[in-house]
Amino acid sequence: MTEAALETVDVTCVFQVGQGFLRGSKPLRAVNGVSLKIPRGQVVGLVGESGCGKSTMANILLGLQRPSSGDVLYSGNSAAGFSRRQIARRIQPIFQDPYSSLNPTKTIEAIISQPLRIHNVGAPSEWTARVTEMLDVVGLPRRVAASYPSQLSGGQRQRVAIARALVMRPEVVICDEPTSALDVSVQSQILNLLQDLKEEFGLTYLLISHNLAVVQHMADRVAVMYLGRIVEEADSDALFDDPRHPYTRALLGSVLTPDPRLGVPDTHLGTIFPNPIDPPSGCPFHPRCPNCTDICQSVPPHLVSDGDHETECHLYGGAS
């Protein structure tokens, strides 16, 4: 198996959430014991609904958020041995909203060359050349270097964000919903670009998205998150062909492919969304689960491995 470029080992992240004046605070387990491997040169998709802990995971991997427990391994070495700046050279993010991810007071050239300046890479005279090179790479005309973000379209801005992320040649890029704020026709351009760049620079991606069609198109391996836990993880084909966890099945069932002969699917999910501060007992998914049994309400399931296919659900055994 290929070496992991990035790996989390039993990472937990707890926030204290205020309950209002004089009511103290309660712990919110945004990420709850997650172990995830991102093999070098692959695309790992992380899917789940809002509030499931995807973004906290991204922050932890980027070194922006210290986990409460557990460890992050960069190429097999513990995060403790790296400074913020060293992590920054290995891992770079691409955000969802290209309108807020670029500082409106800076020119495109200043934005793309910023990592070089921060990390003192090369002489200032070389920076312009590097910026021009990156503009070519992401397919932007060179003359945008002197313009400001407000002059560009959403797709162009996202290309600038990609150029900024890649100018330091990182190993891993964390793409947090990279296309969901863009128009359909622009979306496909950005996805194509990300594919090309992966080949060209030998990148490793963590693709965080709620758009399963995009994840299936891009990812080699997929992890499904629910309330801070990874409930199913498998190679892309295995997961999409044979989804096991009822939540994964519901997610896949909710994908609306443009097939006019099909109606809107009924996901058979409950309408209650659990409060992450006060998660349900047993399996956290049981209030919404169509296959819920007695054991699901009281005993949390364990991870069951079937080769590379890991599922955390009582339907597949796992109760000790």
């Binding site: 980027l62 070194g63 922006l64 807020s100 991810s101 910023q114 921060i118 990390h119």
Partner: peptide
Amino acid sequence: DLDYVKAARAMGC
């Protein structure tokens, strides 16, 4: 809370 501040942090600023 804007993403460009997060991007700068992720850059190691």
